[in-house]
Design a protein around this nucleic acid. Sequence first.
DNA 1: CTGTTGCTTAGAATAGTTCTAAAAATAATT
DNA 2: AATTATTTTTAGAACTATTCTAAGCAACAG
Lengths: 144, 144
Amino acid sequence: MDLNEQQQPPQKRNTTQMMIAHGVNLTKQRRIIADVLFERNQHVTADQLFDLVKQTGSRVSKATVYNTLGLFTRKGLVREIFIDASRTFYDSNNSHHHHFYNVDTGDLIDIKDRLAPHFIEQDLPEGTSMDIVDLVVRVKNIKS
Amino acid sequence: MDLNEQQQPPQKRNTTQMMIAHGVNLTKQRRIIADVLFERNQHVTADQLFDLVKQTGSRVSKATVYNTLGLFTRKGLVREIFIDASRTFYDSNNSHHHHFYNVDTGDLIDIKDRLAPHFIEQDLPEGTSMDIVDLVVRVKNIKS
DNA sequence: CTGTTGCTTAGAATAGTTCTAAAAATAATT
DNA sequence: AATTATTTTTAGAACTATTCTAAGCAACAG
Ligand SMILES: [Mn+2]
Ligand SMILES: [Mn+2]
Ligand SMILES: [Zn+2]
Ligand SMILES: [Zn+2]
């Protein structure tokens, strides 16, 4: 339902370095957002992230949270995951991996290995059965 | 951008039979919608389907289009494909397959075979390169 | 008929997201 | 430093896909 802890050990990342490496200009608000977002591997909605920032005592507008998530996505710092029309998650773990989404609980958790879809069924989370495999390969035009 | 023709030959399907087989009660509006939707394999948004129905001269409310697509989805007649927060497509081909989505053109086309994601790169549509593979395995709780 | 249930409908409401336009911060230039 | 240009933030309005509401209609059973 809410934030989903990840299995990987939470290695503290240098958010300043990350932003510079990806060509993101540093600002006060972006630092705050990045620090909260990359504190650990997690899947958060824009609204959840907005709340998390608030909980640290810092004040960042919701518009900036959206703007920053969009920027981070374009720059490759985070991955957008579209679960349905009203559930967009941002994945602070930008490495290549896929997800289990539990339609009953709303849990969104990582698939550890790059398993072929046909073999995933063997490794479902405890107490769950396969619902639907949604694979969308997004391609882009080769710029000429 | 708009409706994407599919590669498969459009075999006319008996929509009445389909609905009965899936436990959908027959109504005037559901027949109209099913006839338009299953006329061929296609990926349509609710709004596009609403327009298509209008073009046949029949009048069905937008609410009923949404209700019917929801019902058809629950009964397994169609598949929902969530491309992003404002793009939900309904696939009139409910057989197990995946999709290429072109982020530049908006084209949504079928992936013919059940390829493992790692081998898909070899078979991209002409003039496109891989953007992102979005695989979400939806699981559900085993009811006790 | 009469009541019950299921279905359709218009329009209102919801909610996630984007837009707008102005202020603030930051950087560049003289 | 002072001025100018650029970027960023912000509150709130606007947008839009979808869902909800509540009333009417259709089908059907008793
Ligand atoms: Mn909240
Ligand atoms: Mn339209
Ligand atoms: Zn993840
Ligand atoms: Zn398809």
